[in-house]
Every structure is written in C-alpha cells, then in structure tokens.
Design a protein around this nucleic acid. Structure first.
Lengths: 290, 290
DNA sequence: ATGAAAGCGCTAACAT
DNA sequence: ATGTTAGCGCTTTCAT
C-alpha cells in the first residue's frame, strides 16, 4: 500500500540494480532549426509510449566537445543512443563501441555503421534533384548548400549527375553556414543573381533557405518558377502553404524517429533486431515552385 | 589509474549515493513549433557548461498525461524541473511540492508559483500591442489567437485595453489550434477578410502565424501595412527578414533559459536563490508591418 | 506464494 | 594524506 502516501520510487536505485535506465539519449547537431524536430518528436513519443524517457545532447560542430558529451551520456548508462548523423570521430566510435550501449545512427547512410542505422542517401538526393530539374528543362542550376557534410554530399551527387547529363560546366555552389535561416536564403539569392545572372534554378539545403529565396524573389519581382525555379529540402509543414507552393524533397523524419525508438526498445528488452540497417529513401514532392 | 582503459564511471550509482543526478528535466507543451526553441537551447547550453544534462518531456495538451509524465520525471530525482508555462493541475502541484525538487515555472507569471519563476505578463503584452496599434491609428483590429491559455490572456489584455481606449465594440477574435502554423495563418486571414472586411490590423499569436498572414496578403495583393497591419509574437530569427519586416513582440527566450538554469544549479549546489521570481518583460519591435 | 537478503557501483564518512 | 567501510533504494535471487 504505497499509494496515496505520495511515494515515488527512486529510478536511479532501480536503474542501478536492474541496469535498465529506461532512458534513451539523443545527440543532435543543434536544437535550433526545424530539420530534426519531426524526428525528435516522434522519437520522444514512441519512447514515451513504451515507458522510456529521452535525454538530449547538443553536439554542436566541435568534435572535441562531442567526446565530452558522449562521456556524459555513457555515464548514465542509457538503454540506447540515437545519433543524428553518423559518428565520424574515431575516438567517439571507440567510446560508443566499448560502452556496449545500442546505438542508432540516423539521417545518413554509411557502409560502416557503429551498430544500427536508419537513414537515406544524400548523394542520391542530389542526383535525383539534378535529374528532376534537367527533365523540366532547367539548364543553369545553382546550389545553395549548407556547410555541413551531409549537404556537401548532396551537392556532390548533384554535380555528378550534372556531368552525366552533360550540363555545360560545373554547377556553381554557394555555401551558407549551418543551421540555415530565412535571412541567409535572401542574402544568398541576392549574391547568386549578382554573380550568376543566367541562373534558372536553385536547389536549397533546407526549406527555410528556400523560403528566404522565395521572399527575396518576390521582393525583386522575380517570377517563380517562371524566371527562377526553387527546390527545397525537408518538406516542413509550411512548404505546401508557401506562395508558390514549394517543390521539395520529403524525408520521413517521423519514420526515422519511430524506427530508431523501436530498434532501441527491442534491444533493451532482449529482442534481436533483424534488419538493423534501413534506408528509408526520400521523395521529390512536385509543387508549383519548380 | 582509471584512464585509457576505457573506464567510464556509472552515473546512476554516483547519483544514487550523492543524491545529485546532475540532470535537469524540462517539460514542454510541444516539441514542434519554434516558440520555446530558444529557451530550450539556452537552458541546455547553460546546464551543459555547468556539467548538467537536460532531459525533456512533452506534456502535450492532456492534463492526465501530464501527471504520468511528472511521475516519470520525479522518479529520476533530477536536480531541478523547468516547466514551460505554469502548472495548473492541483495534483501536479502537489506532486512537485512533495518531491522537494527545485522547480522553475517559465513563460508566464502567477501570484502563486510552486517555487521559482521566470516569466512575463501575457495580459500586459495584449494591452501594449492594443495601445501600440491604437497609437498608430488603427481602429479595426482583429485577434488571431491560439487556443491555449496564455494566448487567451493576451487576447483578454488586448480587449481590456480596447475598451479603455474606446474602440467601438469588442475586438473580433479568431481562435486557431496550437501549435500555430503558417498554413493556419493563411486560412485565418481568408476567414477574417470574409467575415470582417473592414479589418485594418491583425495581432497574431506567433510569428509563424503572422508569416502565413503576410503570404496570404501578398497572394491577394493586399498591401501590408497600407491595407492591413500585422503584428506577430516571438521575434523569431526570420521576423526581421520578412517582406515587409515583421513588427512583433520580442521575448527574450535565451534569458529565460539561462536564468532558469542558474536558479536550478544554484539550488542544487546549496546556494540560496535570492530573487526567485523574475519578470523579464517584453518589447514591441517596430518594423515595417505595422 | 511470500518474505528475507544480497548487492548494483559509486560517494562520503570515518579511521588510520 | 591515504585507505577502508557503510550505505544510497531499489531489484533480484534465494530460501522458506
């Protein structure tokens, strides 16, 4: 009869004894920026439904801080660790492997995952968007690429497809600092128009960036897609409601979060994960802007 | 000689023994929506710098689920709990009080906080925005209000000031479901124009909603602020970059997070918090849209 | 079935 | 200064 007396059991004691913390850690590059929100939300929800809690850590862009963060996480002996992006640091991989904690890398693909993986190919997104723009008749695309590794690989995929399809020369690329913002999109379009006036299509690293481009285009009286086609990335909830509606690359962030939660809970509860590497793919959502 | 052997101490054991989890829990109404992002980011950063980690819980809009969440949080014996919004549930208050864990309520004011408080007055925001619009000569404002309590109090403050200033009648109010979205803003403007064609100013519950209004206005060829003034809330990073730049209510989310972290760490480390109730105020940022 | 006892891995108090 | 020990509050195991 432990009820009504206000007694709440001590989870640390229970976790220590049973070595089941009922806690999952997620490592995000940044808490700002809406890109991973859907993933975090669905991860949190799926874990919550199963009685686990989510702890978040922000890795930032500094690799040395990442090791400190990993240490703090491993200390708590979570039942699993979800990484957004793949772990590149050798020391980080070693720590994670040595800890024996189930790890899910997400939002990317690699032939050498630490443990489990739920992602998609950034190269193939770049290729697909390039092919899409080419098939629509655009011949002078420019890339607005965030300065992170995944965006870089999308840009590389785009370039490769551009060569295959016989575009005249290399596709001009403008790097914007991650996390991308609406303001950066506006500034970037201004710069592109100045340096590459014949540009007829823009592939933006994020929907937010694309929104900035749309606003700058509108301000300048530039018709979209008539004079400039715009493609975003993410299919955030606002994309469909922009004017013109934004053509973008849809990534099922909800599925990433849900699957990662499932994998970790399965492992935590002693079940084997049969297919621990999942490519969830992507989809180009064709709307009015390109 | 514990180094290089890959040894990582068990934080649960340490936490159990020392009753210092070095963990802080934050309760958010929703992880989607950019409104609390700045607060969470700065909270996480400030805690991180002091060696604490952040655990997040999503309360959603269901009060019964909130009690379950609180239970799960209290189990872990965090060093502090940060609530976004004030705790209304009597049972929740009881649980929190009984746990003895330092609590910081945020983003609101109340004469009866559970423990500590870092917020601002929603009523006064409503009053201030109403006064601002009136002083600029607008006489037919409409409120686009989210259907949550804080937005409701802003709306009430606006109404009260409208009566004081002698507006003709009650200010029409359109309720949109929280969390607010760009699409909801577009739809809401359409509805307002149909039902209240003489409207000359709109106070939106969030910058995202305001952005939707701006886009719908642009689509309809409605001049902002010439034919319709628009005021947002939040001063999110994109507000200054909109076309026209958005007049909005700035709330220093960073300061809220930082202060809450400071309060909790002070308490956790045995220091007394001298002024545990802080009104951080707000500021109307006048730009082009109103 | 029910109850008693051991012990998870630390930290803090105590004894040298 | 250094080493030793007790015990945080549970869960699990073992004995009844």
């Amino acid at each position: 009869m432990v009820s009504q007396t206000g007694f709440v059991p001590n989870g640390m004691a229970g976790g220590l004894r049973s070595s089941r913390a009922r806690l999952v850690a997620a490592v995000l590059p940044t808490l700002t920026g809406p890109v991973f929100q859907e993933t975090v939300r669905s991860l949190n929800q799926a874990l919550d439904e199963r009685g686990y809690q989510l702890m978040i850590g922000q890795s930032g862009y500094d690799a040395s801080r990442e090791d400190v963060l990993l240490d703090a996480i491993i200390r708590r002996r979570p039942d699993g660790i979800v990484l957004t992006g793949i772990m590149h640091s050798v020391e980080g991989r070693r720590q994670l492997l040595a800890s024996g904690i189930p790890v899910v890398e997400t939002w990317d693909l690699t032939p050498t995952p630490i443990d489990m993986l739920v992602g998609f190919s950034h190269e193939r997104i770049g290729e697909a968007v390039c092919h899409f723009l080419h098939s629509r008749g655009y011949r002078h695309p420019v890339l607005l690429s965030a300065d992170d590794q995944r965006a870089g690989r999308r840009a590389a995929g785009f370039q490769r497809m551009a060569r295959t399809l016989g575009f005249g020369s290399d596709v001009p690329t403008l790097l914007v600092p991650a996390p991308t913002t609406l303001g950066a999109g506006r500034a970037a379009l201004a710069e592109v128009l100045a340096s590459h006036p014949q540009t007829d299509a823009l592939f933006c690293s994020s929907d937010m960036l694309a929104l900035g481009v749309l606003i700058e285009a509108q301000t300048r009286g530039l018709a979209v897609p008539g004079q400039l086609a715009v493609v975003g990335l993410g299919d955030l909830d606002f994309a469909v409601n922009l004017q013109p509606a934004l053509t973008t690359v849809r990534i099922d962030g909800t599925r990433i979060g849900r699957t990662a939660a499932q994998f970790i809970v399965d492992r935590a509860e002693g079940r084997q994960v049969n297919e621990p590497i999942v490519d969830i793919g992507f989809e180009i959502i064709t709307r009015a802007s390109a």
